[in-house]
């Protein structure tokens, strides 16, 4: 399973995640394993911060509060206070998960520690299944929010505006909703997987100093992609719910 580039061997880059072992009939891939690591990290952080919460914040609490406040203000500015308060937990979860997963994927050991020639860890977002799952959750909840805020009739009416062009516009509206799934998932997947490929190639071609520059760039991209995913989801939510308020 080794690839060869300029005569130097390195672990083969494959587009899909590699299977590690089977849990009953379900194959466990290296991205799932890394996702579990990210989950454990985030849940542990949540419990530690919650246990030590106090009126005068310590260093850790200050950092966590700063991050949460920044994202909260971002969501509130885009979606407004009422909608923002409802969707904030989802957006924050997505943001934290994507950010942690992207930054964890830059640590040494990812792609290099192998088990039967298969890397044990792989950045979760370099698997289209992970990003697709998050995009599906977001877009599905956007539809739910649209129905909840406009009622079923108002939600369906959105698909046939303007009414004269209904047969023409309905498929266009439908495709534009579905394209959100593709754009959200493919953007994140492409960025992280592409970054992974670039890093691997640069590490093989130009060690040891040049990769540091790319590592810095990738850590910046990891943050930017997390922000973009969060902001775009918020924009979709506010688009689905805002028209209702404009009517009155």
């Amino acid at each position: 399973m080794l690839g060869k580039l300029f005569g130097i061997e390195f672990h083969e880059i494959s587009m899909g995640a590699e299977k590690l072992f089977y849990l009953g009939p379900i194959p466990i891939t290296n991205t799932i394993l890394t996702t579990w690591v990210v989950m454990v990290l985030l849940v542990t952080l949540a419990f530690v911060v919650r246990k030590r919460i106090s009126l005068i914040p310590g260093a850790l609490q200050s950092i966590v509060e700063m991050v949460i406040e920044t994202v909260y203000n971002l969501v509130k500015n885009i979606a407004g206070e009422r909608v923002g308060n409802i969707i904030f937990p989802l957006i924050m979860t997505l943001f934290l998960f994507i950010l942690t997963a992207n930054w964890l994927g830059l640590l040494p050991g990812f792609g290099t520690i192998t088990y039967h020639h298969v890397p044990i860890f792989r950045p979760p977002n370099s698997d289209l299944n992970t990003t697709l799952a998050m995009a599906l959750i977001t877009v599905f909840l956007v539809q739910v929010a649209g129905i909840a805020y406009r009622g079923l009739k108002g939600y369906l009416k959105e698909f046939v505006t303007p009414p004269i062009l209904a047969p023409l516009m309905a498929p266009i509206h439908l495709v534009s909703e579905l394209s959100h799934i593709l754009s959200l998932s493919a953007r994140l997947f492409g960025n992280i997987f592409g970054g992974d490929v670039v890093l691997t190639v640069i590490f093989v071609m130009l060690p040891p100093l040049i990769p540091a520059v790319f590592l810095l760039l990738e850590s910046l991209f990891g943050l930017i992609q997390a922000i973009i995913f969060a902001v775009l989801s918020t924009i979709y939510f506010s688009m689905a719910t805002a028209a209702h308020e404009a009517e009155h």
Binding site: A186, R187, F189, G190, G194, I227, I228
Partner: peptide, 12 residues
Amino acid sequence: GLAEAVAIYCLV
């Protein structure tokens, strides 16, 4: 990020 996404689709 949105503009870059187009290039990312090409990359994928």
